[in-house]
Simulated scan of single mutants.
Amino acid sequence: MTRLSSFHLRVQHAIRQRQLLHPGERLLVAFSGGQDSFCLLQILRDLQPRWDWKLFVLHCDHRWSADETECARFLQRWLQQQGLIHAVATADPIRRDEAGARAWRYQQLDKWARIWECSAVVMGHTASDRAETLLWNLLRGTGAAGLSSLDWQRRLDERDPTSARLVRPLLGLFRWETEQFCRQHQLPVWPDRSNQDLAHGRNRLRLEVMPYLKQHFNPQLEVALNRAATLLQAEHELVVAQADQLWAQVYEPTLPKLRRDPLRAAPLALQRQVMFRFLSLVLPHHPTFDQVEAGIQLLKAGRGSRSPDYPGGSWLEVKEDHICFVSINSTSPKGSNSPRL
C-alpha cells in the first residue's frame, strides 16, 4: 500500500469525521485536469485499497476554445494510460456563460453517476474556493444559503432525493497545498489559461481583490472567510429546520396558498425562508429579494391587496386569511422540496 502523507491523512480524517464517503462505494470523480482535481484523484487512488472504492472519472469539455479541447484529448490519453474507467462529455456548442456551463456540467455528472451507478460525485473544491465563493456571493447580495453554499456534502440535485451525493473532501486544504501536492507527485497538471482572463469577475476577485485584502487587511483572509462560512452554515441549517416545521402549518397546495396568521406570528427570518420556498414552487424562475419582500408585506395588508405582477401574468393576493398565488395561466406548483434562501 502507498505510504500516506500528511495530505492523505488530513483528507481521510475529514472523510471519516464528516462521514463523507463509505467503504465499498462507487465514486464518480469530477476531473478538470487542474491541480485541485489531480490532487483529489491521486489521493482517492492512494486511499482506494483501504476503502475498497470503485473509481470512475468524468471530464467535461465545453468546447469553448481549442486549448480546452486539446486538454480533453490529453486527459483522455492520460486516463487510458492509468487504466482508469473514464468518459469525456463533450458539449454541443454552448455560449460562454458560466451559469449555463455549470448547469450543463451538473447534468453530465448526474447522467454519468446514474450510468455508472455511483452513489457519490466527488469534486476538488478547496478552502480557497470556499473563501472566494463566500466573498463573491456577498458582493452579489445573496442570503445565508449563498454565503455558505460550498459545503462538504449535499445532493447533486437538491430537488431530487434519488440523485447522488455531491462530496467535497478537499475543503480542509488550500490551493497552495494542492499545488504543492501535485509538484511532489509530479502530476501532469494542465494549465487553464482562462483562469487568467480578468474579463471574468471571479478571476479578478481571485487574482486582484483577494491578494489586496490579504496584504492590507488580513493575511489569514481565507481562514477567516472559511470560519465565517462554517458559522453561517450551522445557523442557516437551524433556520431551515424551523422553517420546515412552519411550512407544514401554513402551506396549502390547493390554489396554492399560505395561511397568514401562523406565518405572521413567526420571526422575520422564518417568514422570508417560507416565502422564498413558496415562490420557488410557483414561479418558473428563482425568486428575487424584492419579490420575497413583496410577499412578506402582504402578511399585514388588507384583504384584496396584491403583489406587483410577476413575468408571465401572475401575482400574490390576499384572500380571506390566506396569501394566494394567482395566475392567468393557472400554473400549478412545481413540487414540494425545500429550496434554500
Score class of each variant (00 low, 15 high):
residue 324 C to M: 05
residue 320 E to V: 09
residue 317 E to L: 12
residue 303 R to Y: 07
residue 312 G to F: 00
residue 292 V to D: 02
residue 287 P to N: 12
residue 308 P to W: 15
residue 319 K to Y: 05
residue 327 S to K: 01
residue 298 L to E: 05
residue 273 Q to G: 13
residue 330 S to R: 13
residue 286 H to F: 12
residue 298 L to D: 00
residue 283 L to A: 02
residue 297 Q to A: 15
residue 305 S to A: 14
residue 321 D to R: 13
residue 293 E to P: 05
residue 300 K to P: 02
residue 307 S to D: 09
residue 292 V to T: 15
residue 275 M to T: 12
residue 305 S to Y: 02
residue 306 R to S: 11
residue 306 R to F: 09
residue 300 K to H: 11
residue 304 G to S: 11
residue 319 K to I: 08
residue 271 Q to W: 03
residue 296 I to S: 07
residue 328 I to C: 09
residue 284 P to H: 05
residue 316 L to W: 01
residue 296 I to A: 08
residue 283 L to H: 04
residue 289 F to T: 14
residue 272 R to V: 01
residue 311 P to S: 10
residue 297 Q to Y: 11
residue 275 M to L: 15
residue 272 R to M: 00
residue 316 L to I: 12
residue 303 R to L: 07
residue 316 L to T: 05
residue 330 S to D: 11
residue 314 S to P: 00
residue 313 G to N: 10
residue 315 W to A: 10
residue 306 R to C: 06
residue 269 A to T: 10
residue 306 R to Q: 14
residue 269 A to R: 03
residue 288 T to G: 15
residue 324 C to Q: 03
residue 331 T to M: 02
residue 307 S to F: 12
residue 315 W to S: 02
residue 321 D to M: 10
residue 331 T to Q: 01
residue 283 L to M: 11
residue 320 E to Q: 14
residue 304 G to Q: 15
residue 277 R to D: 07
residue 281 L to W: 10
residue 307 S to E: 09
residue 270 L to E: 06
residue 292 V to R: 06
residue 312 G to T: 03
residue 317 E to P: 06
residue 293 E to C: 11
residue 313 G to S: 08
residue 280 S to H: 12
residue 274 V to G: 00
residue 283 L to P: 00
residue 324 C to G: 00
residue 270 L to S: 05
residue 313 G to K: 03
residue 307 S to G: 08
residue 301 A to N: 01
residue 268 L to R: 15
residue 305 S to R: 13
residue 323 I to L: 15
residue 304 G to T: 12
residue 282 V to I: 03
residue 272 R to T: 01
residue 280 S to V: 00
residue 310 Y to R: 03
residue 327 S to A: 13
residue 291 Q to C: 11
residue 292 V to C: 07
residue 319 K to S: 06
residue 296 I to K: 04
residue 285 H to T: 14
residue 315 W to F: 14
residue 270 L to I: 11
residue 312 G to V: 05
residue 306 R to N: 14
residue 309 D to A: 15
residue 292 V to H: 15
residue 280 S to Y: 02
residue 282 V to Y: 03
residue 308 P to R: 13
residue 292 V to Y: 09
residue 314 S to N: 00
